[in-house]
Simulated assay, not measured.
Amino acid sequence: MGSGHFLVEACRFFGEKLYEACRLCDELALEAEQQAENSQDEEIRKAAFQKARIFRQRVIDLPDADDKLMKYLPSAAPEGEETGFSQAEAIALCRRLVAVHCLYGVDNSSRGNTCYAERATSLVLRGLHSRYAGFDGVWF
């Protein structure tokens, strides 16, 4: 396994972990909001809303220019609907964020440009849809 395979797998792994972290923040924010709505005590209500705001801000602070990721989280799904397609979109978006902001690789093999092109193609096929999905990466 070469460095290109490692980068593709790292992108997949960290993209999924980023999505899991975003979902966890979303779930914790929902719980805090429900706690605030059910509370009679004003202090508890304020603290719960503050906690929810902090969890939501963690996702908002990601370098997602259009805040698309927030739209694909379970709290944004219409009442009673699953997030199936949007979950796949959210994972692809997280992978793009990881690829653009977190991955760097060097290929020092004699086949340099060929290996580079193969890994770029592999990243695209793994869900990092080129310009059509908002990914203007350095590979193209």
Rank of each mutant, 00 (worst) to 15 (best):
F55W: 06
Y104D: 11
D61Y: 04
T121I: 07
K46S: 07
Y72V: 05
R131I: 10
M70F: 05
S86H: 14
E27N: 09
A65V: 14
S39R: 01
L125D: 14
Q34F: 00
D67I: 07
L97P: 08
P74Y: 08
Y104W: 09
P63K: 01
A48C: 11
A47M: 09
A52Q: 09
G112F: 01
C11I: 01
E82V: 11
A77I: 06
F140D: 11
G15E: 05
E37C: 01
A48H: 02
E79Y: 09
K17D: 03
Y116C: 10
C94D: 11
R96W: 05
P78N: 07
R45K: 15
D66N: 15
A36E: 02
L28K: 13
E118D: 15
R12Y: 09
E33P: 02
T114D: 12
C22S: 10
A90W: 14
L69S: 11
L123H: 08
S86Y: 13
S130E: 12
L97F: 07
A117P: 00
L18H: 04
V8I: 12
E79G: 03
F6K: 15
S3Q: 09
R96H: 03
L24E: 14
C115S: 12
M70P: 05
A65E: 15
F13K: 10
G127F: 08
A90Q: 13
F135P: 03
A32C: 04
E89S: 11
A77L: 03
E9Y: 04
Q40T: 11
L97R: 07
S109E: 10
R53E: 15
T83I: 15
A48R: 07
D41M: 01
R56G: 04
F85I: 12
R131M: 05
C115Q: 09
A76N: 14
G137T: 08
R95T: 04
F6G: 06
A48I: 05
S39W: 01
S122A: 13
G4A: 09
A90Y: 12
C11V: 11
G137R: 02
G2S: 12
D136P: 00
S130F: 06
V124E: 14
P78L: 08
R45V: 05
D136I: 02
L125P: 00
V98M: 04
F6W: 07
L97G: 07
K46G: 01
R23S: 04
G137D: 05
A90V: 12
S39M: 01
I91L: 13
C94T: 08
K46W: 00
G84M: 10
G2E: 11
S39A: 15
G105T: 08
H101R: 06
F85L: 12
A120F: 02
K51Y: 05
A92H: 13
Y104S: 14
A29K: 02
R23A: 04
T114P: 00
C11Y: 00
E33K: 10
Y19R: 10
K68M: 12
A36H: 04
F135W: 15
D61P: 02
R56D: 07
E43P: 00
Q57G: 01
E9C: 02
T121M: 06
D67F: 10
Y104Q: 13
S86F: 12
I60T: 15
A47G: 03
E89M: 14
E79C: 08
S110C: 06
I44L: 14
Q35I: 06
Y132N: 13
A47D: 15
E9K: 11
E20Q: 14
R96T: 13
